[in-house]
Amino acid sequence: MKNENLRVAIQGIRASFHEEAALKYFGENIQTIECNSFKQTFEALKDKNADYVVMAIENSIAGSILPNYSLLLSYAFPVVGEIYLPIQLHLMALPGVKFEDVKNVTSHPIAIRQCVDFFDEYPHLNIIESNDTAACAKRIRDEQLTDTVAIANTLAARLYGLDVLERRIESNKKNFTRFLILTHHENVTKTHPNKASLCFQVSNKVGALAKVLNIFAEQSLNMSKIQSMPILGKRNEYNFYVDVEWDDAKHYDTAIRQILKYTQNFNILGEYERHDDENEKLPKTVKNVKVPRTYINMKKMG
């Protein structure tokens, strides 16, 4: 997807994985709106300070980012797309720093968890958690830290002038994060969706959820994701977040009509085209992706 001058809100700063995902989905000519939290990205969209939000929802190793499911429901912005990003993690430091002189390693806790095998070999290193991978790289540059390395992507190394000491330190080389694309209702354009994100509740009775899942199977819908979340203040009651895919839209329409009989508070969070990367040899590097020239920091906007 190629778009110019779109304002895209991300959690984190320039050269974060969220920005990398935004570049992959929208192309290079975007304005990146830096936000301190996922909630702030939704607020930027709500206040019309952003046209789109790119938000991580799950990682193939760390699993689902549960608080983000609650944001999907509470803000009710439509999901209009998705992107799967291969997560390649590198160890980077100021130019001239040698690995044997390093005492501290800093990164996002999820990134650290994805590199446990590497750090098991260096138990003397002090692990420092932070809220953003790229921010860790920037801090090393800004504070000229010679005893600290960051775990981040190649975009961060280039943008903040760091040397990569060790490449691909993630434990699983087939590590992906799935990002959702959200926007205002008026920005939704007609496409040919073949995937939907749904949210609903079922009664607390034997077989209630099974009835819904059987309908998906009977209509030849592939359920690619199911996630349950407790409803605050209600004992033994859950929201179920389900992603389904289809080849024939008629089957999807029939399934929706049927499951409405067995669900409560049914919501279609979004209908969109699933991300197919069959022709890409993933994971791949991002060495040919340029960092966008413009960005907006929500902290500066007040």
Rank of each mutant, 00 (worst) to 15 (best):
N222H: 04
R235Q: 10
I256E: 06
R274T: 13
K250S: 12
I231K: 14
I226V: 12
M229E: 07
K261G: 00
V242P: 02
I268S: 05
V242G: 01
P230E: 10
E245R: 05
Q258D: 06
A255L: 05
M223E: 01
N279L: 13
E245F: 02
E278L: 15
E280R: 15
K281C: 09
Y252N: 07
Q258T: 05
Y272C: 14
E280C: 14
F266C: 06
K234H: 11
N267Q: 11
Q227R: 12
L232I: 09
E237G: 00
D243M: 06
Y241C: 02
G270C: 10
F240C: 00
E278W: 15
Y272K: 14
D253F: 09
R274L: 12
E271H: 09
T254C: 06
M229N: 10
Y238H: 07
G233N: 09
N239A: 01
N222P: 00
G233M: 08
G270D: 12
I256A: 10
K234M: 11
L232R: 13
D243H: 07
N279T: 14
L282G: 03
R274D: 12
K234I: 11
G270Y: 11
P283C: 05
D253P: 00
I256Q: 08
F266R: 08
E278S: 14
E278Y: 13
M223W: 00
K225C: 04
I256V: 12
T254N: 15
D243F: 01
N222G: 00
S228N: 11
H275R: 15
H251F: 04
N265C: 02
N265E: 11
A255K: 05
I231W: 10
Y262T: 08
N239S: 03
F240R: 00
I268M: 08
K250Y: 08
L260G: 01
N239V: 00
R235P: 00
F240H: 11
Q264I: 01
D248R: 11
K225T: 08
I268W: 08
Y241D: 01
Q227C: 07
M229W: 03
I256P: 13
W246E: 03
L282H: 04
R235T: 09
E237C: 02
L232K: 15
V244H: 03
E278R: 12
V244Y: 03
Y262W: 10
T263L: 05
A255F: 03
E280K: 15
M229Q: 09
Q258F: 07
N236F: 11
P230L: 07
R257P: 00
N267Y: 11
I268L: 06
I231Y: 14
G233E: 07
F240N: 06
L232W: 05
S228D: 12
M229R: 14
D247G: 13
L269F: 07
R235I: 07
P283G: 08
E245G: 02
L269G: 09
R235L: 10
I259C: 04
E273K: 15
Y262K: 09
S224R: 04
D243V: 06
E271D: 12
F240I: 02
F240W: 04
